[in-house]
Nucleic acid binder design. Structure first.
Ligand code: MN
Ligand code: MN
Ligand code: ZN
Ligand code: ZN
Lengths: 136, 136
DNA sequence: TTTCTAAATGAGAACGAGTCTCACTCTAGC
DNA sequence: GCTAGAGTGAGACTCGTTCTCATTTAGAAA
């Protein structure tokens, strides 16, 4: 359920999420806010993120490790992401090709109400230069 | 690290996983084995599944709820899945279209070591008939 | 076959992300 | 201003997963 009242906590989450370059976890966001002097509670961060997702003000996805990550995306409609494993930096992608493929393949096998998870992970140019993320 | 010894526990996990139609969780697998009279431990099920994934004897993916699911797939190489939300039944998919798109899009944005998560979820014909999964 | 050793196991403790509870706070409508 | 009740937050709780470590056992060596 989305909230009916405007609180500084809600605004703080929105702001902190907006200034993050890429996807962040609820815990990271909470820590960042606390580090910035806020007294916001973890439960509130979770609640607010959930409500932002509900109203499409934020996107969410599961990290490969199974943690929920959140992002305030510029693109409004349905889209996908290319995410840097090193720094979390994210590129928004539209993928009509994949949308159509998904629907077609689902229908071919008699499936309905088809949903899809499509995320790309890689190493951005900057992180490659820095040697992050991949070097053993 | 993959084990060097053959234990009945390892074989039991392999067998139980093989006879499962679709993706199953470690806990489900453990319960099924216990129900079948086995005394196998939960930690062993987790360890064995991890090692089967390491040797490509099993595929793994994160459920939308963030739980790790496992499957013993018929297809050997890289492929994707169309999974029924109702019964877990799974269709293996090859998707050259998506493989190429993924590489191309990644390269276009200067990313390297591109990996991708591509899973389709839907309702299979049988479950739709039964009214599973979607009806409120 | 018997012996030996370290790999493997499993019960239970520990961990961590996320949810829930409920007394307290503060927004916003009057 | 008052006030109802939406929103908050500390901390308890859930649950998937990993860790610990005493015990078992696969399998190589004798
Ligand atoms: Mn899509
Ligand atoms: Mn692929
Ligand atoms: Zn990067
Ligand atoms: Zn089904």
């Amino acid at each position: 359920m989305q909230p009916k009242r405007n609180t500084w906590q809600r605004e703080a989450v929105r702001a902190s999420l907006a200034q993050a370059r890429g996807f962040v976890s609820a815990q990271q966001l909470h820590q960042a806010l606390r580090d910035g002097g806020s007294t916001i509670g973890l439960a509130t961060v979770y609640r607010t993120l959930a409500s932002l997702v509900e109203t499409d003000e934020a996107d969410t996805l599961q990290s490969p490790e199974g943690e929920s990550l959140y992002r305030s995306c510029a693109t409004k409609g349905h889209h996908h992401h290319l995410i840097c494993r090193g720094c979390g930096d994210t590129v928004e992608l539209s993928a009509n090709l994949v949308e159509e493929w998904s629907q077609r393949v689902g229908a071919e096998h008699g499936f309905t109400e088809i949903d899809h998870v499509v995320d790309l992970f890689g190493l951005c140019a900057r992180c490659r230069a820095k040697g992050d993320g991949a070097a053993a």
